[in-house]
């Protein structure tokens, strides 16, 4: 009499709970007409700075925007972003290195999704951990700054390969850092062929208009495929 163990095929995604919640949230966002953008980068790349500028410019064009921002501690970033006049909430993870769908969901409570056109999720500064977690976004954007070097995409291919677009930030410092945009683009193209790449300096404003236009176009493609450009729709 041998006691052979039984093998049970399970074949279930380990993050199924997160993925299912994220899928449900995505459906709610799309039904409400909210275009959700998940911003991911290492700490200090300038996510908050670019987002400050983005919130201001989108609102100036008549878009209704909101943001949730993740950090381990402090609400410094939320206070910075709130100066734009947009509704902003801080997610403090107290040590957790990434955002999960339920954290975002909890911090959206009380907001009426229908009243937003764009929702930005600023992830925890980290180029590894946020990769596995779907937050229900429609667009995941990876950011890299010129101060980090051109080879960031080669060092962290997982994140860059699974992003929908890449923004190179702080281009006003490119020369001082001897940063080669061409080499950075080549590396990005290597780990994610065809990925849209934008270059911005939130400080000088260079490239920010193109970034904002990119967001509006992507939103239009997803949410209003048959409608005219938003400039004719919004005051």
């Amino acid at each position: 009499m041998s006691r052979v163990p039984r093998i049970l095929e399970v074949r279930t995604r380990i993050l199924k709970k997160n993925d299912e919640l994220a899928r449900q949230m995505r459906q709610e966002f799309l039904a409400a007409g909210v275009f959700v953008v998940n911003l991911v980068s290492s700490p200090g790349t300038g996510k908050t700075r670019l987002l400050e500028e983005t919130l201001v410019r989108l609102q100036a064009q008549g878009w209704r925007v909101a943001a949730v921002v993740g950090d381990l501690e402090t609400d410094n970033d939320a206070r910075r972003l709130a100066r734009s006049g947009a509704p902003v909430r801080q997610i403090q993870t107290h040590g957790c290195c990434h955002l999960e769908a339920h954290m975002v969901q909890e911090h959206l409570k009380g907001w009426i999704l229908d009243s937003f056109d764009f929702l930005f999720i600023e992830n925890i500064g980290n180029l590894v951990c946020p990769t596995s977690w779907d937050l229900g976004e429609s667009l995941r954007v990876a950011l890299m700054s010129v101060t980090e070097g051109e080879d960031k995409p080669l060092k962290y291919p997982g994140l860059f390969n699974t992003s929908d677009a890449v923004v190179i930030t702080k281009t006003d410092l490119a020369e001082a850092c001897e940063f080669s945009p061409a080499l950075a683009r080549q590396n990005l193209e290597a780990v994610r062929p065809g990925v849209p790449i934008l270059e911005t300096s939130a400080k000088t404003g260079q490239g920010v208009a193109q970034w904002v236009e990119f967001l509006c176009r992507r939103r239009g493609e997803l949410l209003q495929p048959n409608r005219a450009p938003m400039t004719s729709l919004r005051p």
Binding site: R3, P5, I7, L8
Partner: peptide, 23 residues
């Protein structure tokens, strides 16, 4: 990122039965 399978001890009533996959 997937849990492919688990192994569990055979239950007593099936002790003599050969191991088999459970649906």
């Amino acid at each position: 990122l997937e849990l492919a399978s688990i192994e569990i001890p055979s239950s007593h009533q099936h002790e003599d039965a050969p191991a088999k996959d459970v649906q």
